[in-house]
């Protein structure tokens, strides 16, 4: 039984009648990682927001989304809100704007844990400290007492992941989790995502335009362009034998930048590829 099954998902703008995502279908198995790849404007973020039904009101969607054989569209907004957080957890692109700038980090964290799991403060704090330590955030207590602007983007991103850890969702939807970060934090964030998968066996939907990131973690890849799915398959096979020209193009551009670098580094064993 698939954890998540999406059939003929279609998203369009109610005003302009422009279709943003064309009939898209895919399934996600328990504990697997699915990556949605595409350039900006390909509809990949809209797709994953449609799963959690978080798109703007002006965007309409149809098609079927089954989560553990339960149809999501028929749920009311209230039931859906319970599902988000408990079953789905979003990790957003920009940590800087994902937290309320006017209150301390811990207010946000405790509030989320209270709504979804009904934990009291003490328990939330204990669990959060544990979770934050597991994503390599030292001084968790101190960090929780800070405001978002006092922390770096990579830290906020890891706090979001820690929150996801504490919530123990079934699916983590990570929308460009590394794009706004610099290379060192990128690596750390990816490391944490990989760890979560191992320890908690939760499925991940990863949206990214960086094929390097995708190749690193995903089991399956879905290539999107202009709202259409061009190709899907196992990560190794897609990267080894891309069927579609567009996929080939994406792979080629990425490897042109990397190859040059790898060639330079081959002379030493600093980088293990």
């Amino acid at each position: 039984m698939a954890l998540l099954e999406v059939n003929n998902l279609r998203v369009w703008d109610a005003h302009t009648k422009r279709v943003i995502v064309h009939n898209t279908s895919f399934t996600l198995e328990e504990g697997k990682c699915l990556a949605i790849v595409g350039e900006s404007g390909s509809g990949k973020s809209v797709t994953c927001r449609a799963l959690a039904q978080l798109n703007k009101k002006s965007l309409c969607q149809d098609g079927e989304i089954h989560f553990r054989n339960e149809r999501l569209q028929i749920l009311s907004e209230k039931q859906m809100r319970k599902k988000r957080g408990k079953n789905f957890c979003m990790i957003l692109q920009n940590g800087m704007t994902a937290f309320d700038p006017s209150c301390k980090i811990k207010v946000h964290l405790f509030e989320t844990l209270k709504t979804h799991l009904n934990w009291e403060k003490k328990r939330s704090e204990r669990k959060m400290i544990q979770a934050m330590e597991s994503v390599n955030l030292k001084n968790a207590k101190e960090i929780m007492n800070k405001y978002p602007h006092q922390l770096s983007g990579g830290m906020l991103q890891r706090i979001m992941i820690a929150l996801a850890l504490a919530l123990e969702p079934d699916i983590i939807i990570a929308d460009e989790p590394t794009t706004a970060l610099d290379t060192i934090s990128q690596c750390e964030v990816m490391e944490q995502l990989r760890k979560i998968r191992l320890n908690m066996n939760c499925a991940i939907i990863l949206v990214s335009h960086d094929l390097g990131v995708v190749r690193n973690i995903a089991d399956e890849v879905l290539v999107m362009k202009e709202g259409k799915v061009l190709e899907k398959g196992d990560t190794p096979s897609v990267f080894a034998n891309p069927a579609h020209d567009y996929t080939k193009y994406l792979i080629k551009t990425r490897s042109t930048i990397s190859d040059n670098f790898i060639k330079l580094m081959e002379r030493s064993n600093l980088v293990k590829s």
Binding site: T178, I184, C187, D210, L211, G212, F261, M265, L270
Partner: peptide, 9 residues
């Protein structure tokens, strides 16, 4: 460290 922490393709 910078070189080690890279996501390569």
């Amino acid at each position: 460290k910078l070189l080690k922490n890279l996501i390569l393709f």
